Structure formats: structure tokens, C-alpha cells
Amino acid sequence: MDAIYRTQRHFYDLTRKYYLLGRDALIAGLAPPPGGSMIEIGCGTGRNLIAAAIRWPDARLFGIDISEAMLATARAKVAAAGLSARIVLAQGDATAFDAAALFGQATFDRVFQSYTLSMIPDWRSALRQGAHKLAPGGRLDIVDFGQQEALPGWWRTLLFAWLGKFDVTPHASLFVEVDAIAGAGGLTAAHRAMYRGYAWSAQLARG
């Protein structure tokens, strides 16, 4: 991942804002409890964490990413925004990380994964990790590429071919997996397609 993002990190946010749809809607809907904690799994450049810190000024925020190159950019952006006291970053694998060792707490009021599952080979483990990190009353929020189900077939073919060049794979079974995790863990699941299926969003809530 460092090899991929060593250069891309410098213009990642500028280009992604045009096609990573639904990120800001996810952030606006997080609504953590007063003084609550939130973690982004796969935080990249820190763009979402900074937006969440501004939108929810009482929250404590954490982020992990497997790429140290991306984290270097995230740390610089967080510092430039004056948010180093509220946003804690650490290197970690989305499929298996020890939040207690990294951050001093094992669970969080809000967990979010924004356009990360489609980039992770073992995405089901990453999804389960997100659910396992929920505190009582907590919620996992997800947004990622959908299956383009209400868009023209040629669009889907071109988009998936282009995403494939960057090792990005939208998962047709995302909602099925969310429901399975909910059933196995006593969680409540919700999901929907957005923008005619361009993006999918999902939630898992505990309690």
C-alpha cells in the first residue's frame, strides 16, 4: 500500500472528491453521543476524520490505516487543521488490529468505513472487525461503491474496468454479509442503495 500511495497521497483528496459519493452524508449522520468516541478504519489522508471533527466538535476521534505513507499525510493535515489534540492516528491492519493497545480503548460509539472495503482483499474480516469494535449502543456506518444497478450497463462495465486498474472491487454480497454479521452478533442491520446504485450504504447497530 505504501508503494501505491507514496505518490497518490499528494493528490488523492483532490481527485477522489468527484467520485467517492456519500462520504459527507455518512459523516453528517454519525451523531455520536456527547463526548463520544469515533474511529475510522482505513482513514487514508485523514480527510473524513477532519470533517467529522469539525461536524461533531464534542467527539474524540481515532483512525487507523495500513499505509504509513498515507498516515504521514494524515498527520500533517490534522496538525494543519489544529486538531492533533482530538484526532489520534495509528498504523493498523483493518482485518485485525488491537484498538486497546493502539488507543487505550477497545470499543467505540461510532465506527465508520468509507470506500475501504472495496480495496481490502479480506474485506469480510475488515467488516467483522468494525462490528467487533462497537461499544454498547454503538453503530458501524459504511459507504462504498455499489453495483450500479439502476445505471446503464455500459457505465457499470466502464467503471468496474477502471476501478480494477486500482485493485478496487465493489462487492455484490456486501448487504448479505452485513445481514449475516447482524444475525450472528445480535446486531441490527440497515442498508440502501444511493445515486441509482452508484454507492451503497449500510449500518450495523449494537443495542
Rank of each mutant, 00 (worst) to 15 (best):
D2W: 05
R6W: 03
Q8F: 12
Q8L: 15
Y12N: 09
L14E: 14
L14N: 09
K17A: 06
Y19W: 15
L20V: 11
L21E: 05
G22E: 03
A28W: 06
G29Y: 02
G29I: 01
L30F: 03
L30C: 04
A31N: 15
A31Y: 12
A31V: 13
P33A: 04
G35N: 03
E40Y: 01
I41S: 04
G42Q: 11
C43M: 10
G44F: 02
R47A: 12
N48L: 08
I54C: 07
I54A: 14
R55N: 03
R60N: 11
G63Y: 00
G63C: 09
I64L: 11
D65R: 08
S67T: 05
A69L: 09
A69R: 13
M70D: 07
M70H: 09
A72Q: 15
A72G: 15
R75D: 11
R75W: 08
K77L: 11
K77H: 14
V78A: 03
V78W: 01
A80M: 11
A81C: 06
G82P: 06
L83M: 13
L83E: 02
I87W: 01
I87A: 04
I87P: 03
I87D: 02
V88W: 00
A90R: 10
G92E: 01
T95D: 02
A96G: 12
F97G: 05
D98Y: 10
A100F: 11
F103R: 00
R110I: 04
R110T: 02
R110L: 05
V111K: 07
F112C: 08
Q113G: 11
S114G: 10
Y115F: 15
L117Q: 06
S118R: 03
I120M: 07
R124L: 03
S125T: 14
R128A: 15
Q129K: 15
G130C: 10
G130M: 07
L134A: 06
G138D: 02
G138W: 02
R139Y: 05
G146I: 01
G146L: 01
L151H: 09
W155A: 10
T157F: 13
L158Y: 12
L159N: 15
A161D: 11
L163K: 06
L163V: 06
K165V: 08
V168M: 02
T169P: 00
P170E: 01
A172V: 13
A172G: 12
S173E: 15
S173Y: 00
E177V: 14
I181R: 11
L187N: 07
T188G: 08
A189Q: 08
H191K: 10
H191I: 06
H191P: 09
H191Y: 10
M194L: 14
G197S: 07
A199E: 01
W200M: 08
S201L: 10
Q203M: 09
L204I: 12
L204Y: 10
A205Q: 14
R206S: 11
